[in-house]
Design a protein around this nucleic acid. Structure first.
Lengths: 231, 231
DNA sequence: CCAACTTGTAACCAAATAGTTATATCATGC
DNA sequence: GCATGATATAACTATTTGGTTACAAGTTGG
């Protein structure tokens, strides 16, 4: 993962203001932020790959090229680390959503954009899907007690509601379509395909992850979504 | 679970042919099939609730009201037990599918029936969904090496293809619709809603599991599926 | 330039965990 | 009616696991 690569490169980029610029080459140099971030990345991989119960603190420490003491130092305990991973993953998608600007688009184009955005985000962040699956296995136990995640609510539903209303006014979308149902439909089609691709391709003996297949499914999501709301 | 209830009731129903009918009331009576089945039920619960890594052999033994030695006796090791659980779960759905007879139905009715069947099966077997999620976390590692599961292939796709073809002939469905895509669409809408209901209801602050909500979503699946294939 | 604090390492520990062994008891074919 | 194998119990073991402690070394404010 990227964290490992940026290891011995940038070292305190702002602390050397006027001081002796001996960016020491001793093997053990400090960088709390980097260590924190590296641990978080490693933990994300480990929890996504093995679930909460299957994840090993030792393995995370090894992945992050540090030791367990640091995990407990920065994150308290296994649950605290898991929660931090979950919150960071949600923060990533909430942040990405900001790039969307559906307000000035034709409703049909807006719907297409929203569906493809969701699909592409899932594609780019498979660890997010795995974490969601894990968290749901635990009945969202950790998510519920996260004040951070509940604080960063998505504007997606509001934007979607606006697109639907404008489509309705234009007479191209059915009236009174429920935006949450539409969002769930888009998310379901993307999530299921990617999250369950391993069992599905085993059962159906079909390759689901070739670039073409992935592209086709993105278009399928758009087509199904539009068909379901068109007047 | 049901296994516990049927504990001290039926005991060797055929072995008492002419022999002394002292169906002994000693606390320790034997019944290998029941023990086997009870362990499987308990393991299904445990693996579905905690995933493979989080499941505990001791907990399964306790749930089944037996001891670890029996788990290893009947299933070899943890992986063997997990695989048996997975195979039994697939056998359940394959078995249920036999009740479907879409061939003599009007295509539109057939599609409705297929979608609702899938939805109802997911509703009735939440543990199947959890196991699927867990198995996909492990990239279908265990499913791939199961000759049992690959042997019991579903006829659902064949039946679905037939329904689609008849609908096409009648001019009500679009031509050349891919049956696997249609099945994935139906499964996705059901799976995602149920599997992710905990995080979803946390994020959207909406109750998704009331009887009405569940029924509505079933109808939503039917509506979306039909809209996506109609001519 | 040094006292106070932060960041890091490695060895350690108690509890938990998958798997085993010793042994007892039931069922049944002969 | 009993030898034999299958079914059951509980105590045991080697290893792993989450979490801790002792201590070393880097960093920084006064």
């Amino acid at each position: 993962m990227a964290a490992k690569a940026r290891q011995q490169t940038e070292n305190k980029a702002e602390a050397d203001a006027g001081k002796t610029v001996k960016t020491q080459t001793t093997k053990v140099s400090r960088n709390p932020q980097r260590t924190h971030a590296t641990i978080l990345d490693a933990a994300t991989e480990e929890f996504a790959a093995h679930g909460f119960g299957g994840a090993r603190m030792d393995a995370i420490a090894a992945r992050a090229q540090t030791n367990k003491r640091m995990l407990y130092h920065y994150f308290g305990d296994k649950e605290g680390l898991y929660l931090a991973v979950l919150e960071a993953s949600y923060a990533t998608i909430r942040n990405a959503e900001k790039q969307l600007d559906l307000a000035r688009r034709h409703p049909e184009e807006g719907m297409r954009e929203l569906a493809l955005f969701t699909w592409r985000h899932f594609l780019a962040h498979p660890e997010f899907l795995s974490l969601l699956a894990t968290e749901n296995l635990h009945h969202a136990h950790y998510l519920q007690r996260s004040d951070k995640v509940s604080a960063m609510h998505s504007h997606l539903i509001d934007e979607l509601a606006d697109v639907l209303r404008r489509g309705e006014v234009l007479g191209i979308f059915r009236p009174a379509v429920d935006p949450i149902s539409v969002y769930l439909t888009i998310a379901a089609l993307g999530f299921f395909y990617l999250s369950n691709r391993h069992t599905l391709s085993t059962i159906f003996a079909r390759k689901l992850t070739s670039p073409d297949a992935l592209n086709d499914w993105g278009e399928h999501i758009v087509a199904v979504t539009l068909a379901s709301i068109r007047a």
